[in-house]
Design a protein around this nucleic acid. Structure first.
Lengths: 137, 137
DNA sequence: CTAATTCCTAGTAAATCGATAGAATTAATA
DNA sequence: TATTAATTCTATCGATTTACTAGGAATTAG
């Protein structure tokens, strides 16, 4: 399941993607528009900024704007930024790999192979969903 | 990601699936064989029993055994029993549906549709992985 | 009756989540 | 330069969940 953070991030990106080119959106504007607690959204926007999805202008008349194409941002990326691995266990993860402590050897782990199949399918599906694909009504 | 509970449950089912027909496995035997904390495993086996995946014999020489075909038990079912919804948000879930509180209307929710596509793909992949498919080396 | 096992209920320490608070920093403009 | 409006940063907090652990009751075979 997605965390609230990831969900809110997606909604915020959706909101930004719907704005005119060159429009800068204030946090409060996004919060109201997408029904997100403002202070919580602040943190999320900072995370999105650190992840180089958006950039910001500070001070009066400042705010946030997309710096990547909405056709380019996928659900998989947002999931990874906020909720981490897409695989069901770290030992089956591409980007968040960690060995399992309770398996004797990786070869012997009977789960890993199946989980990698699922990861591949889920990842493919998640990479197919972009901000642009969601925004169009 | 899978919880430890779900992971241990899968490993326990795998262990049971590898035993001879009519063999009854004690908790301690499964715990040692699959590297699972025994007391924790007790609870998990009870959950699996309530979910009608296994049954038990009580008292001395008691233990657990599979009551469903290993070809029939899928990762999707185990996920749902221990970790709940497969969809990324409750509003996109088949078995754990709940409306989102932060969407005005369900139609208007731009996330839901994309998440349902992902759910369908993930579910299909998860239903393709059975205990039997994992057990064979 | 005894030993070995499942079954049941609590409890607990640590982590995570969802948020809130408040102040520092930055920038536009009057 | 002072004011105002915004982002940015750091810290904290309460509730929930997670991953166990503990202890004992119930059950059964011999």
């Amino acid at each position: 399941m997605l965390s609230h953070k990831a969900k809110y991030a997606l909604k915020a990106l959706l909101y930004l993607a719907e704005q005119d080119e060159n429009h800068i959106s204030r946090t409060i504007e996004i919060a109201d528009g997408a029904n997100i607690p403002k202070k919580f959204l602040e943190q999320i926007l900072l995370d999105l900024k650190r992840g180089r999805f958006v950039s910001s202008k500070q001070g009066k008349f400042g705010g946030y704007y997309l710096i990547r194409s909405k056709n380019d941002i996928t659900l998989a990326e947002i999931h990874r930024l906020f909720d981490g691995a897409i695989a069901l266990l770290p030992c089956a993860s591409l980007n968040f790999y960690e060995p399992c402590s309770d398996c004797k050897t990786e070869e012997e782990c009977s789960l890993r192979h199946g989980l990698m199949i699922i990861r591949d399918e889920t990842l493919k599906a998640m990479q197919g969903i972009t901000i642009a694909s969601l925004v169009k009504k």
